[in-house]
Write a protein that binds this DNA or RNA. Structure first.
Lengths: 340, 340
DNA sequence: TTGTAGGCGTTATCAT
DNA sequence: ATGATAACGCCTACAA
């Protein structure tokens, strides 16, 4: 069943059928009716390949999600769908494995889908500096700050990672903690991990707290298991602390379990704070203290900035969205004395 | 940059270039070298639209995942990728919202990608009985038993939901529990929910335990929040029980939180068992008892059955993969006396 | 408003 | 082994 068959069936020419099907102007109401009806009845659908092959641009906004399994991105996609549904544009979502190159993928999808703009959910600055030059449509990188890249068509909307980590540590310090261990990502690989590490160091410096990165920073992957193992190696190495800052909620969850197995209670013996604000954290016992990213706002500004760039050719800009520190049950104030 | 440009550049004809690029036979070693090199150098990539438009079948195996956010499927996709990587076939993964129709999508993707076969991760039997007839390639539905549908080209690999639920309840009963509440899905909507409910009832019947579905079965959605709310309404309605069986781990997590807020400890006051075997469950305090689905095996058999159907035209078959009951910290035996 | 025809980039079928 | 050429299904000028 092709557009030709539909043409034959309705007595119109393929051109008219195409126009009717795509809601283009210059089609009589009668023709539109007849054609749409026939299409409906026969279950006809346009062949995307032929369509995209021919079209020089669609009216699609593309979302490239890096890393399925990242719950935060799941929420964000929902928000984005909501927002874009209120515009004349279509949304296409593409999920990519964590370890694949999102920019390479974008280049490919640009040729295939010819989107109006791209929203990257997650990504690595290095990939952008290497391969982004051949992307010419406006894009927004969500989650990372891309200002330093200085790319003309790449905006960014992110949480201030340095500030977020600094405030997390500030909070713990305010509560009386001075011996804090950090479970983060690999700073050599992930921009975010590096920035969060820097934020931690700033806070330590301001408070005159010594921190032994070699011994009290664990650079691991973002998973429960890695958080669990990180705490075990800290404890195994004889490190002692009254608080742990994990730069992702999932790592914090693993950390809590490892502490529990070692006979340490949260928050009685050790306070634990994560980052992200996963919905799951609200249901844990104890509820997980966290640096909560403002997902709806990240989504809203990303879409706004992208649309503005598409419609008004606005130049790239870089925004940071405020976060909030959620002091939940997994942290508690301690007297500065009682350090283990 | 098209295949024509490459032809001009290398001095060969487009036909030769196409063959070389696709690894087809009847291309001289010299031509292959020259062309591949030129393609490499200029970063040329085939246009998927044109390719798929022309091809009458690809060598792709398609995976349609229904419901991002389902961690179990994430694991399964990984296993599948591993397995298919050892075959000459390519894998394409398509993610679909929970509430969209996976069969409609399959029909569309068949026209677009012309895959050799499809693996459905999750799906609704009703959708299959309605719209599957126009799919003609071999398919495997993973997670649901599709035997009853009697479709010639649809196999299935699943966990026996009736049996799984029955054994879960059996386990709780063996531990001395007789007052058990159930948090499940909507039996009118989900096949799986209905079967698990039946399994529970079978176990109750065998043990001569009365169960008041109206009051002690909560049909909700599969989320932490729904599990949480379900327990609150149970308690609010004055229901008392020594154990809860939640037909998904995420609901169990929410349930535990609600119990905790009501001053009930797990497992001291109430035992909780889930279904799925999410990796996360291992890191909770208490570790979540669960009916653990055998994900690697589900993946392995699904792929094997699909390949067998593709390569040998084997008829559809329906397998159940054994599960295991993981008695973890969230359940405990009680004396039959001490019912709250 | 409607019809006609050329071409999008590729594969595949012919010859050569 | 290689080259020419006709589709694939659709969009889009342009002509009517």
């Amino acid at each position: 069943m092709t557009i030709k068959d539909l043409a034959a069936k309705t007595g119109y020419a393929v051109g008219t059928v195409s126009r009717a099907l795509n809601g283009h102007p210059h089609v009589s109401e009668k023709a539109r009716q007849t054609i749409l009806e026939a299409a409906q009845e026969s279950g006809f659908q346009l062949n995307t390949n032929a369509k995209q092959l021919k079209q020089h641009h669609s009216n699609t906004i593309l979302v490239i999600v890096k890393g399925i399994g990242n719950e935060l991105f799941g929420e964000m996609v929902e928000s984005i769908q909501h927002l874009v549904a209120q515009t004349p544009y279509q949304l296409a979502v593409d999920y990519l494995d964590e370890d694949l190159n999102e920019v390479t993928r974008a280049v490919q999808l640009c040729r295939e889908k010819k989107p109006l703009g791209i929203l990257f959910l997650g990504g690595n600055n290095r990939n952008f500096s290497q391969a982004f030059s051949s992307v010419e449509i406006p894009c927004v990188l969500v989650t990372n700050n891309a200002r330093a890249l200085g790319l003309k068509n790449l905006s960014s909307v992110s949480t201030d990672d340095v500030e977020a980590a600094r405030e997390a540590i500030d909070t713990l310090v305010e509560m009386g903690h001075r011996k804090i261990a950090i479970i983060g990502g690999d700073r050599a690989v992930s921009d975010t991990s590096r920035l969060r590490y820097e934020g931690c160091m700033e806070s330590f410096a301001r408070h005159g707290i010594a921190f032994d990165t070699e011994k009290d920073y664990q650079g691991v992957r973002y998973s429960c298991l890695d958080g669990y193992q990180a705490v075990r190696s800290l404890l195994g190495a004889g490190r002692r602390f009254t608080a742990i800052f994990a730069t992702a909620d999932v790592m914090a969850i693993g950390a809590i379990r490892a502490l529990w197995e070692a006979g340490l209670r949260v928050p009685e013996d050790v306070s634990v704070m994560g980052v992200d604000g996963l919905p799951l954290g609200d249901f844990l016992v104890p509820q997980l203290a966290t640096v909560r990213q403002n997902v709806p706002e990240l989504a809203r500004r990303s879409v706004e900035i992208l649309l503005d760039a598409i419609e008004n050719d606005s130049p790239a800009c870089h925004e940071q969205i405020p976060f909030t520190i959620a002091r939940r049950e997994s942290v508690r104030p301690i007297s500065t004395q009682g350090v283990t």
